[in-house]
Design a protein around this nucleic acid. Structure first.
Length: 507
RNA sequence: GUCUUGUUAGCUCAGCUGGUAGAGCACGUCACUUUUAAUGAUGUGGCCGAUGGUUCGAAUCCAUCACAGGACACCA
């Protein structure tokens, strides 16, 4: 049974004692008239008065009891609401006859949510507190809180029972407040630039727009399978064909792949598409976007990330091939020759799948020797066409695309390019992806002929970009696991779960 | 998917080369009207992740499984 723990039983018994005495342990008559942060702010002046108190003021605040120090006929408790923590002085003689001994001391405890009324005063130790003349239990907690000093540190408990993590670890609350602000600021930034926020399907007949394995679900009425989207890209571009000139979508993508410190099966990204612009414009708007975020989040441009320090005033821009030599240290005569690259990689003890083309091998070199060295924000540009199936070719050099990826602290944060809008070229790139799929690449793009048809009606020259919001938040909050920036990260069930599909089929 | 390290009271953790389970916090009882992880006294609290094996005897050794952390592989 869920409540058979003896500590829980003990607390249920306390709730029952209160009920039997006609006292509701789940009262619904809160009269709170301020928050703790406001209380502390408004009454800060009390410290400067002679008596260190102002009995003419009166406030009602509410919160969860985090600490309780009972000293006979008087007690200190610390209560916490969303805004902060407040010390409350509770003395027997300021409360109704019998309340302090019979109700407060015996049946109210750490973890319970209470409401207190009283006046501000400063204790002998100099802490602005509340001198209580009323105290009411609002919610009896029947499960005890984790240890008051160490809190809950077990990662499994923190992720599975995030509410406990939030109760016990104030830093966690901060992280998710920052996350919320990042999303809100992102929305505002693009709206202010004239972008239209849109919502495109999450259930796709073809999982397109990225190299990834999709989740499959089933539509009963139509008897067809649908894929959870791996990217919104192809729908957003259809909207550009339709005549919208600047659109964005902030929402979830789903990829059926491994989980680790930087991958969750569902993750949030923003993708935005901008007609009559190129990837050069995207570099400019991206810099502006970061400036906007740092400004509104009050972050220093020298931002610590683990052992690293990232200088957000030092955006760099370098073509991929050039970075292989200048940053990766790969000799220039190697980087343009597939055979020499394989030899070079083998000499370094790295084996690659046979049959990779030049562009793919350059990608290997980049992943191996360059990526982790990109600490300050760096736009890597001019990607080989072989690893950029949706990007527009450079007019000067058809082997490379008008594309960049933004790397910060050794990690990819954004991916952007001037979009391919030649429908015949797009068709042949899909066909190449089909060939790759046939030869065993199960992450190659699917043919999406409806999308190619959309392009056939003409898409204005367009630049598009995706930014991984989770990784961005990790960077801004100095967190090193994606689970620490997701309120409810994906976890395996503790006991074997039956297949959801089987259950619904029976209905 | 592979390797690796964990899993002991509600929480944080001890428990050595096998000999019937420990602390702190929390909780109960008592004392205490300005404390700061309040303090002092005292008591309750455990299927040692699960299942097998070795052994006279297993929290401890071995195997399998489950879950989690870390690393690698794949990716964003």
């Amino acid at each position: 049974m869920i409540f058979d723990n003896k500590f829980v039983q003990q607390r249920i018994e306390k709730a029952n004692i209160l009920k039997n005495a006609g006292y509701n342990p789940y009262a619904n008559n809160s009269k709170r008239n301020t928050t703790i942060a406001k209380y502390l702010n408004v009454n800060a002046d009390v410290a400067n008065t002679e008596s260190k108190r102002d009995e003419k003021r009166h406030y009602i605040v509410s919160g969860r009891i985090k600490l309780q120090r009972i000293m006979g006929k008087a007690s200190f408790i610390k209560i916490e609401d969303e805004s902060g923590m407040l010390q409350v002085y509770v003395a027997r003689d300021n409360l109704p006859e019998g309340f302090y001994n019979d109700i407060f001391k015996k049946n109210i405890e750490v973890g319970d949510i209470v409401e207190v009324g009283g006046y501000p005063f400063v204790t002998g130790q100099g802490e602005l507190s509340l001198h209580a003349d009323s105290l009411q239990l609002l919610t009896k907690a029947i499960s005890p809180l984790p240890e008051k000093f160490h809190g809950v540190t077990d990662k499994e408990i923190r992720y599975r029972k995030r509410y406990l993590d939030l109760i016990m670890n104030t830093k966690v609350k901060k992280t998710f407040q920052t996350r919320s602000k990042v999303i809100s600021l992102t929305r505002r930034f693009f709206e202010d630039k004239g972008f239209l926020e849109v919502e495109t399907p999450m259930m796709h007949p073809i999982a397109g727009g990225a190299n990834a394995k999709p989740f499959v679900t089933h539509h009963n009425a139509l008897s067809i399978d649908r894929y959870l989207r791996i990217a919104p890209e192809l729908y957003l571009k259809r909207l550009i064909v339709g005549g919208f000139e600047a659109v964005f979508e902030i929402n979830r993508n789903f990829r059926n792949e491994g989980m680790d410190a930087t991958h969750n099966p569902e993750f949030t990204s923003i993708e935005f598409y901008w007609a009559y612009k190129t990837y050069k414009d995207l570099i400019r708007i991206t810099k502006e976007y970061f400036e906007y975020l740092f400004d509104h989040l009050n972050l220093p441009t020298l931002l610590p990330y683990g052992d690293l320090e990232v200088n957000f005033a030092n955006f760099q821009e370098i073509p991929l091939i050039e970075s292989l030599t200048t940053i990766g240290g790969v000799p220039a005569d190697v980087t343009g020759d597939a055979t020499k690259i394989v030899e070079y990689l083998n000499a370094k003890g790295i084996t690659v799948k046979p049959g990779l083309n030049l562009g793919q091998l350059q990608g290997e070199l980049f992943d191996e020797f360059v990526e982790e060295k990109l600490i300050d924000p760096t736009f890597i540009t001019e990607y080989p066409v072989e690893i950029s199936p949706l990007a527009r070719r450079s007019d000067e050099n058809p082997a490379i695309t008008e594309r960049f990826e933004l790397f910060i602290a050794g990690r990819e944060i954004a991916n952007a390019f001037s979009e391919l809008n030649d429908p015949v070229d797009q068709l042949s790139r899909f066909e190449a992806q089909m060939a790759a799929k046939d030869s065993g690449d199960d992450e190659a793009h699917e043919m999406d002929s409806d999308f190619v048809e959309a392009l056939s009606y003409g898409m204005a020259p367009t630049a598009g970009q995706g930014i991984g919001i989770d990784r961005l938040v990790m960077l801004l909050t100095n967190e090193h696991s994606i689970r620490d920036v997701l309120l409810f990260p994906a976890m395996k069930p503790i006991s074997a779960e039956e297949s959801v599909l089987q259950n619904t089929d029976e209905e």
